[in-house]
Simulated scan of single mutants.
Amino acid sequence: MSKDNIILPQHKANPDDPPVKPPPHGPHGPMPGPNFLGLEGRIAIVQAQVFLLAMIMIAQLWLITDALYELLSGRTAILGWLALASGIIFVVALLVTFWPKRRIEGL
């Protein structure tokens, strides 16, 4: 048996990746996939998400600064309320991030 008849297995960078299918071909070459970026109003929704998340990040930074000031001043009575507010704002940030995408793509 010669070396030319031996078939070596192909190595994959990540064996858990699903198989990649080539795009469908039309009469003039590959056909484009779904255009989620071109959906009506998508750019406005993404811009609003970025703006809201920036405001939420500023509020989180303010809460952390206030909590650290209260902790270092020895006034720990309000720390629980600040942690609760921070948790609520975190949940709102998750909603802002994931909810509009589900509504647009129909998931």
Rank of each mutant, 00 (worst) to 15 (best):
L61S: 05
H28A: 13
R102G: 08
Q60S: 03
F90C: 09
L52P: 01
V46P: 09
M31Q: 15
I89M: 11
P9Y: 05
G74F: 06
L79V: 11
A44F: 03
L71F: 10
R102W: 00
L72D: 07
P19I: 01
L61V: 00
S2N: 15
T65Q: 01
Y69I: 12
P30M: 14
H11N: 01
F98I: 08
S73D: 13
L53H: 09
W99A: 15
D16E: 15
K21N: 13
L61D: 00
I89E: 06
G106F: 00
A85H: 04
R75T: 09
D66M: 03
P18E: 10
S73E: 09
G33H: 01
A67V: 01
G33K: 00
E70G: 02
K101Y: 04
T76W: 06
L79M: 04
G26V: 11
P9T: 12
P34Y: 08
P34F: 01
H11I: 01
W99L: 09
R75N: 15
I64H: 06
S73G: 08
P23I: 02
I58S: 06
I43T: 12
M1K: 12
V20W: 04
T97D: 01
V20R: 12
W62F: 10
F90P: 00
I88F: 06
Q10N: 09
P15E: 10
P27W: 06
I89H: 00
A54L: 07
E40F: 12
P18S: 12
L79R: 04
R42K: 14
P9R: 08
V96M: 01
M55F: 07
G80D: 07
G87W: 04
V91D: 06
W81C: 05
Q49N: 14
K21D: 11
S2D: 14
L82H: 10
V91Y: 07
L68W: 04
H28C: 12
M1I: 06
P19G: 07
K12T: 01
I88M: 05
A59G: 05
P100A: 04
P30D: 14
I78V: 10
G87N: 08
L37M: 13
W62V: 06
L95N: 11
L94V: 08
L52W: 02
